[in-house]
């Protein structure tokens, strides 16, 4: 099994280790908000569903847009490079939103998460997913690839969590 962990390179994120756990599946921790099957025809609909759930969970404005694009890029990867279908799951644990996208595709021999030059036509999806979230973890277990991203929800004041 191979696991790649990418943390934000820019100062915008928390950078405090969120999303670096190697137990790739945080599934089961926290509240499940969404669990849907990915197909090419559902990409837009799934993005809108993630917008609705992440907004309800408390993400707003640029933070919401960034997380949604990151998830969308992982979903798009499944359709284009990961065998065409898979699962997208979203859950919340306290003030952290995690989205895990998995497929049963052939897997990746190599994962490059670097910014493509402005003149290069492709290869920006994973870079965007990493830049726009608090962490990107990619796990390749031989039976497909799982990628997850996390975002922190900034709460003014609530009675729960801390």
């Amino acid at each position: 099994m191979t696991c790649w962990v990418y943390r934000p390179a820019m100062g915008s994120g928390g950078g405090d280790g969120v999303g670096t756990g190697l137990s790739s599946s945080g599934a089961g921790i926290g509240v499940r908000l969404l669990s849907e099957w990915i197909t090419a025809a559902r990409v837009t609909e799934l993005r809108h569903a993630v917008v609705a759930e992440a907004r309800s969970a408390g993400l707003v404005d640029g933070g919401l847009e960034d997380f949604v694009l990151a998830v969308h890029e992982l979903v798009t990867n499944v359709v284009r490079h990961g065998g065409g279908s898979g699962w997208v799951r979203l859950w919340q644990h306290q003030d952290t939103l995690t989205c895990e996208v998995s497929d049963g595709g052939p897997g990746l021999d190599e994962v490059t998460v670097a910014l493509a030059g402005p003149g290069e036509v492709g290869h920006r999806g994973l870079w965007l997913a990493q830049q726009l979230t608090d962490g990107l973890v990619i796990t390749n277990g031989g039976q497909g690839t799982t990628a997850s991203v996390t975002a922190r929800i900034a709460r003014p004041t609530t009675g729960e969590g801390r």
Binding site: H72, E73, T76, G119, E120, V121, G122, R124, G125, L128
Partner: peptide, 13 residues
């Protein structure tokens, strides 16, 4: 998304 960025770069070329 990144696929639109790709389309823009291809069109730029």
């Amino acid at each position: 998304d990144s696929t639109v960025l790709g389309a823009l770069v291809a069109a730029h070329h």
